[in-house]
Computed example of a mutant assay.
Amino acid sequence: MPLTCVAIDDEPLALELIHSYVARMPDVQLLGVFEDAISGIEYLDRKNPDLIFLDVNMPDISGIELAKALKEKPMIIFTTAHKQFAFDGFELEAVDYLLKPIDFERFSRAVYKAIDLKKYKANAHAFQDESVIYVHSEYRMIKILLKDVEYIESMEDYVKIHLAYDKSVLTLMSLKKILEILPEQQFRRIHRSYIIPVSRIRSVQNKKIQLSYVLLPIGESYLEQVKGWLGV
């Protein structure tokens, strides 16, 4: 099945460019183009495309506001002449963020990210492997080897996955949400701000857990749970 998409942009030339680029990609089908956000929203209420090419700066409603208002969110590739909205795109888990003028090579790379993500979602059962998880970070799906996870830290609306070799991955997710996709017997929450891999526990003393390379506190509300699964 082709990747279905629509484009919403108040600049006719930008829509013509997207139309011409999509025509060069046999795996992609452009269902419609819209010069105003309201018409685009009305269409999206009736149809469910896989992807939206969405301009950020539009007179009636910004692309950022439109994306936040959508009840059913397809994948989004933001298009804009302004760099300062890239963080908003990251927060909305956009597939990519294209700066105008957009060349075909950069456009096609963004689209193939969306195609890969569609395939991943359609075959999610094939990725049910207790040795890895996938998280969305920096406009792409990142494969995390669970054996490399040192610990996971809450950072307001994000979690930071601390990995071996001083690497880390930041993803827009809560600790509660990431805990749902982690193997229950391998990872445990010990604090409102921390999840740890059980295999990395070296010692427990004075309401603190020593992991391979870091000492973390045990939250008061988690203390009895930790004692329970540690058998102490």
Rank of each mutant, 00 (worst) to 15 (best):
K167W: 04
P26W: 06
A67L: 01
E150G: 12
I76G: 01
R140E: 15
A86I: 08
L30H: 05
E11W: 01
D157P: 09
E156W: 15
M58S: 00
Q210A: 12
Y139H: 12
F90C: 04
L216Y: 12
K143P: 10
E42Q: 11
L175W: 09
L117S: 06
K160I: 09
E11K: 00
G63R: 00
K176G: 14
L54E: 00
D88Y: 03
Y222S: 06
D103A: 07
A81W: 02
L215I: 13
K160G: 07
M75D: 08
A14E: 06
A23L: 09
I178Y: 05
Y21F: 14
L146S: 10
Q128Y: 06
E153I: 09
T4Q: 08
I142R: 15
K121F: 10
Q205T: 09
R109K: 11
E220F: 13
A164I: 15
L31I: 05
L99R: 05
E65H: 00
D9E: 12
F34T: 00
D55P: 04
E153P: 13
Y120L: 08
G219T: 09
G219R: 13
A94S: 12
K113L: 04
L3F: 04
S108Y: 02
Q205I: 05
A23P: 03
Q205G: 08
N123Y: 02
A124Y: 04
A122N: 11
E138L: 09
M75W: 01
M173A: 08
T80Y: 00
I161P: 11
K118F: 05
G228Q: 14
K121M: 10
V169R: 09
A122W: 01
V198S: 09
Q84F: 12
L54P: 01
D10S: 03
S108W: 01
L54F: 03
S221F: 14
K71N: 06
D45I: 02
I61N: 00
S20E: 13
L223W: 15
L66Y: 00
D60Q: 05
I115Y: 01
K147R: 15
I142G: 03
D60G: 04
P2D: 07
S193I: 09
L98W: 01
K47P: 01
I201P: 13
H82A: 14
L15W: 05
V28Q: 07
Q185P: 05
L146Y: 06
D9R: 07
Q84H: 15
D129N: 14
Y194K: 10
K100N: 07
G63S: 01
A81M: 04
N48F: 10
S174W: 12
K208G: 06
I41R: 11
F85Q: 05
Q84P: 10
V204W: 15
I152M: 11
